Amino acid sequence: MQPISSAVPSPTVRKVALVSLRGDREFRKVRSHGQVIRTRFFQLRVTDYRPRYGEVWRPRAIIGIVVPKKTLKRAVDRNRARRRVHEALRTLPGLPPCRAILSPAALVLDAPFAELQAALGKALGSFDPKAKAGNRSGPGQAGAGKTGGTRAGTRPVKGAQ
């Protein structure tokens, strides 16, 4: 009979404390300034780590996992997807210091765990904190003032030429 060993994690897998992104304000900041990385398993919106006002500088990964009802209808599936992604992030060695929002796709439920973990590692590794997010102006905002023409179905304003 083999002696029962204590539950000690293997030395190759380093456990990383994973902090959750909390509060509407933090989510809005990441959504507005984040760099988008898309894979077939998830969409990741990442910004660099900056401490909040008055907070001590402790670089760490602060990640919010959001699974909308539109992606997965059943709460059981949403929770399972969230748990799988959280565990893949937790066991991933060497998370970069960042703030991120991760939205898993339905494929996360059926994907092999190693493949999901590899995709997360590759996506977080490709994040460049120096790169700026793209131009966020919506349709009709960029150049619509002085140089924009008339749109279909609208009349020109009197005296404007």
Rank of each mutant, 00 (worst) to 15 (best):
L21F: 05
G23E: 04
A131I: 03
P9W: 12
S32T: 12
V85L: 07
D110A: 15
V85H: 01
R58F: 11
G121D: 08
A133R: 14
L109E: 15
P139C: 12
K15D: 02
V66T: 09
G23M: 10
D77M: 06
K158G: 06
L92D: 00
D128K: 08
G134I: 04
G64A: 06
R84E: 02
R155Y: 05
L107Q: 10
R14E: 13
L124K: 00
Q141K: 06
R136P: 03
W57R: 15
T12W: 03
N79L: 02
I101N: 03
G148S: 12
G138A: 13
R38L: 02
G134V: 03
I63K: 00
S10C: 14
S5V: 09
L89A: 05
K69Y: 05
G145V: 11
L109P: 12
T39R: 15
V66S: 10
T147W: 12
V157L: 15
R82Q: 10
I37N: 06
V30N: 01
P104L: 08
V46G: 06
V16W: 04
G153K: 01
K69E: 04
G125Y: 02
K73R: 13
G64P: 12
Y53M: 12
Q2V: 10
L116T: 06
P129Q: 13
F42V: 03
P129L: 03
A123G: 10
D128L: 09
R82C: 05
G140W: 05
A61L: 01
G121V: 01
V30K: 00
L107F: 14
R80K: 14
R28C: 01
G159W: 02
P129E: 07
D110K: 13
R38M: 01
V16T: 14
S5Y: 01
A142T: 09
I101H: 11
W57F: 14
A100E: 08
P51E: 01
V66Q: 02
